[in-house]
Each structure stands twice: as C-alpha cells, then as structure tokens.
Simulated assay, not measured.
Amino acid sequence: MRNEYLYKVEDNASACTWSEKTQLEKGDSVTKGYTSELWDFTCINATQNDFQDLRGIWAQWDDEAKQLFYQNYGDLPYLLDIKVDKHLFRAMVQFWNPAYSCFTFREVDLVPTLEEYTTLLRCPKIQDNKAYVRPTNLHSFMNKLVMIIGMSEQWAAARVQQKGEGTCIPWASLRDLILAHPDMKRRVDVLTLSIYGLVIFPKALGHIDEAVTDLFDRLGKQNTPVPTILSETFRSLGARRRAGEGRFIGCAQLLLVWFHSHFWKVDKVHCRVFFKDYSSLKEAVATPRRDDITEERWIEIL
C-alpha cells in the first residue's frame, strides 16, 4: 500500500512538472498580447430554491429506499444539507477570470476538474468515458416526462408550463407524485430528477426545466453528467462576470465543497487518506464552518 501511495505521489509530481514545463515553452491559449486582469466588482445573485420539502421526503425514506438511490445516483442527497455561504460565494465570483475560465487567487489559478466533480458525486453507475451529448432527435418534453415518471400524457399535459423561453414542470407537481407513487423505483427517479432540476441546474426557481429531463434520460444509459455540470458552471460564472450582475445558474453547493477541498488543514498531518467508501459530500455536511465572515473579509483572505 505504501508503494502504491508513493507511485501516485510521483505521478502527481511528474504531471505538475510537465504542466509547468509546457506552460513555459508554449505559453497560454489566450490571444497574443492579451493581459489577464480580473474584471470590476460583480453583483451576483446566489438565490437558491427551498429544499425543505426535498429534505423532508428524504428523511421519511427507509434505509432500503436510500440504498437504492445511492446505488443508482450516488451522493446527490447530501447536497440538500450543504449550506451556501453567500458571503464566500459572492467573494469567490470576484476572482473568476473569464479569459482563462478559472479562479485566479493572487498567483494561483484553480478550476474544478472532471475528476474532482466525479469524485464528489460518487455515482457508481457513471462511466467516465460516456459524456452526455444532447441528441438531435429529441422526444417531446411530454413524452420524456411520461417515460420518467410513469404517468399518463394527460397527467403531464395538465402540469407542464411555459416559463420564460423554456418549458418546465412545477416542483410541487413532482413532490406530490413522489409522496403518492406506489413504485419505489419511480419515486427514486423522480426525486433524482427534482434534485438535478432544483439544486444542480436551478434555471427556473421552483421548476424543473425541460433540458434536465434530456440529461436525466441519458443517466440511465450510464452517461456522466459531470461535463455538462462544469460547462454550465463556467458559462454562468463567465456570463455574470461580463455582465457585472445576474443570478448564478449552477450548483453553488458543489462549487463551495470543491473550494473547501483545496483549503483544508489538519494539524500535524501531511496528507489525507481516503477509503473506498469515503464521501466528500457527506464529510462536507458534517464539517462545521463559520458563516459570520463578511464578503469584504473573504475578498481580503482570498
């Protein structure tokens, strides 16, 4: 085990050396002559959906139902209990560099990776080499809903709504379905769809957007949602920075857990050892964090 650990350390060191050497030799990918600089202050809206009903449903389920969820969709339920520190989140956004699509904290560039987010979600059925690509020939939103929730077209047609430029279904309709549906597997599927729509891709508050049903449909084929989650995160951060304002449409919970994972500190311990059943999101929920640090103070710290 010690040798295996040392090999990994050596591999990481080699990767860092290669990265630094390549950067020095070839420079970066931004247009020649461009000088990287952070934009002016961004007033970002970090409004979240209310997860009280989602947490209540999850708390009512027995261990068998929860294990069925974990086995199919990973650690998503822990996201419901991760508090978004809005002061920290708004401070972080000020350090997002749209030109490089990364956070620039003084002399350090950081950006979430596919591997990191895959580890956070910890979904056993995801295949890393099968990324979600939106198909060209799509079923109608109504048909997709019917296939996912197992209800009739009449039921779906009575509840689907137009919200802005998109089509969606209210969370209240899915909540009632989860509480009443006799099929446990269907209830797990609908709860998963709801978490993706309300927590990970909260485009329309209180609603699940049509695009989320496209993604959910591919989860059953073991496609990984991580590239889509990251691309939406980067897109929203970049758009808000360029506009100087607006609501963040992405998973703030995942982004904050990722951030804290790079700033952990354990006294007199030089490395962290993770076991097979270790859950980063579970640890994040159990770890107490201060929420009395102001946005201005966070900016000074970062």
Rank of each mutant, 00 (worst) to 15 (best):
W61A: 15
V30N: 03
W18D: 10
C168I: 05
L256R: 01
S140T: 11
E10I: 15
Y7D: 03
Y100K: 07
V188L: 10
D292T: 08
F105P: 00
N49H: 08
L121N: 01
L177E: 04
S19L: 14
S173C: 13
K265Q: 07
V84P: 00
G33D: 02
V146E: 05
G220H: 11
G220R: 04
Q154W: 09
A65M: 08
G197P: 00
G220Y: 10
D176R: 13
Q60E: 14
F141I: 06
S19D: 08
L177N: 01
E165F: 14
T228N: 07
L205T: 05
D50I: 12
G206E: 01
A172K: 08
T233N: 09
D267R: 09
Y100I: 05
V257F: 13
M1W: 12
I299N: 04
F89I: 08
S231K: 12
V133S: 09
K203R: 11
N72C: 12
H262P: 00
D63T: 01
K265A: 15
T17E: 06
L256D: 01
G220C: 02
L281H: 07
I82N: 01
G197F: 14
Y7K: 12
Q161N: 04
M147C: 12
A46K: 04
F141Y: 09
N223I: 13
N45S: 15
L215R: 06
L281E: 02
L68T: 08
A15I: 11
D109S: 14
L120W: 03
H87C: 03
Y34S: 13
K144W: 01
L255G: 02
D28C: 11
V108P: 00
R272W: 08
Y70M: 09
V212G: 07
E10M: 15
Y73P: 00
F89K: 00
R159Y: 12
Y196R: 02
P170V: 12
L24D: 06
D183F: 15
G74A: 09
F259A: 06
I229S: 03
